[in-house]
Design a protein around this nucleic acid. Structure first.
Lengths: 110, 110
DNA sequence: AATATTTCTAACTATTTAGTAAGCACCCAA
DNA sequence: TTGGGTGCTTACTAAATAGTTAGAAATATT
C-alpha cells in the first residue's frame, strides 16, 4: 500500500504533501478534526474541547472545513440554536493522519 | 497499536496533536521532511527539490529542524561549502505522518 | 583581476493568520 | 422587563510567518 513513496519528485504545485497541507494546515485545523473524530458534536461542546480557541476562529475553521467537504453541518431549527458537526467520508480519511500526529506527540514529545 | 485513540480528552496544553504541530506546522516544514526522507541531501539539492522556497526560509526551517532534533547537519570544511542534511532517528519517526499526508493528497485531492 | 560557486546571514517589508471585543437573533424563565 | 443560553458576525488590532534584497567568505577557474 505505502510501498513506493520512495520515488520522490520535486515538490512543485502537484506535490501531494503541499496539496494536503493547503487544506489541513493552520493552528487549529487538525486539532478540530481530532476532536470531532468519529463523533457527532455540537458547536458548544467543540468549543469546550478545543481549549483556547476563540469563537471567531472556530467558526472560521468549521466553515472552511465544510467548504472543503471534510465536515458536514446540521442545524436544527430550535431555540436556543443547536448545530451539529461531524466528519464527512472525506474527513474521516484524514483521521489516519491525525492518529499518526497524535501518536508521534505521545511517544516522542514531552 | 492505534487501538484506543478514541478515548479523547480536551485539547489543552498537553494535547499530543498540539505538541506535534508546534514542531511540524508551517508552510514548508513537512515538505522539507518529505524531500529529505531517507536520503542524505545537500542544501542546494534540497533547494531545488522544494520548488519555490526562498533561501531564507529553507535555512530557517533547517535550523529549526536541527534545533528540534529532527534533522542532523554535517558541514564539510571546503570551499565552496558543502553541507549535508539527513533525518535523525526522531526525524525518521515523522515519516509515517508525512506518508499519510502524501497518501491523502494523492488519493483525494485534485 | 574578475567571476562563479555554495551556504548562510541580516535588515527590511509584506502578507497571512490569529486574537479581542462588541453585538445580534431568538425564545424562555424569572 | 430583564437576563440567560446558543450559534454566529463584524470591525479592528496584533502577532506570526514569509518574501525580498543585498552581501560575505574562500578558492578555482577564466
Amino acid at each position: 500500500m505505502e510501498k513506493n513513496l520512495k520515488i520522490i519528485n520535486a515538490c512543485d504545485t502537484n506535490c501531494p504533501v503541499k496539496k494536503s497541507l493547503s487544506i489541513l494546515s493552520g493552528k487549529w485545523t487538525m486539532m478540530i478534526l481530532y476532536q470531532i473524530n468519529t463523533r457527532t458534536i455540537r458547536y458548544g461542546e467543540l468549543k469546550r474541547a478545543v481549549v483556547g480557541i476563540s469563537e471567531k476562529m472556530l467558526i472560521q475553521e468549521l466553515n472552511s472545513l465544510v467548504e472543503h467537504n471534510l465536515v458536514s453541518k446540521k442545524a436544527y431549527p430550535e431555540i436556543p440554536p443547536k448545530v451539529e458537526y461531524k466528519l464527512t467520508e472525506l474527513g474521516l480519511k484524514t483521521l489516519p493522519i491525525i492518529d499518526q500526529i497524535a501518536a508521534f506527540g505521545l511517544e516522542n514529545l514531552v
